[in-house]
């Protein structure tokens, strides 16, 4: 039925709702598409610098921006092991309590990074900001260590290192491990 007659019909008979919505469907969809297109344009315009960086190949591995988090460095297993062997730096395991309990880097604190808005524990906040902190998560494409690193950066820590190979690599290399919950 043409929309005009439908509208007349709905007026004269008092029919409404579903009929109205139905006869206006093409118009509604057109408007929705316009809103969608505006969203794409606005998003691209406002984030132009990010989009440019993306086009240049950044953010293909991780959304972590080195430029915005200058105090964070990604390190290899070897560097992490050296720091650990020299008892330099405080290690943080960003995984949940479950996997942490099953095995973690000895002396590493458990600091799951999943819960946003939650404050860091007081003893972590009291650490000198120059202290070397080493964070890790499961490995592979796990992101919680980066998330934790970002939060520590925001709290003013100046030397944060992310062991990108994570627990997987540490374990595979046969390095020492410790089991059990975080007692602190």
């Amino acid at each position: 039925m043409p929309s005009g007659s439908s509208r007349r019909a709905s007026k004269s008979t008092g029919r409404s709702t579903a009929d109205d919505a139905l006869s206006e469907t093409p118009k509604i969809i057109r408007q929705a598409l316009v809103i969608g297109a505006l969203g794409v344009l606005l998003g691209a315009a406002v984030n132009f610098s990010l989009v440019k960086r993306f086009a240049r190949g950044e953010f293909r591995e991780t959304f972590f921006s080195q430029a915005d988090n200058s105090s964070v460095r990604l390190i290899t297993l070897q560097e992490a092991e050296d720091l650990w062997a020299a008892a330099e730096g405080v290690f943080f395991d960003a995984r949940g309590a479950g996997p942490y309990g099953e095995g973690h880097v000895p002396r590493a604190r458990n600091l799951p990074a999943t819960e946003s808005g939650q404050k860091l524990p007081a003893d972590v906040m009291e650490l000198p900001r120059e202290r070397t902190l080493v964070v890790y998560c499961e490995g592979g494409d796990c992101q919680s260590s980066l998330l934790l690193a970002k939060r520590l950066h925001d709290e003013g820590f100046k030397d944060i290192r992310v062991m990108t190979g994570g627990w997987e690599e540490w374990k595979k290399a046969g390095l020492p491990e410790e089991k059990g919950d975080d007692k602190e």
């Binding site: 809103i35 969608g36 505006l38 969203g39 794409v40 606005l42 998003g43 691209a44 406002v46 984030n47 990010l50 989009v51 993306f54 953010f59 293909r60 591995e61 959304f63």
Partner: peptide, 21 residues
């Protein structure tokens, strides 16, 4: 990674525009 980036750039603006409208 790429789709996540595109969605992150567009989706919030879609929410804002539809919400304002």
């Amino acid at each position: 990674q790429s789709l996540s980036f595109i969605a992150a750039v567009v989706l919030p603006w879609l929410e804002i525009l539809a919400g304002v409208a």
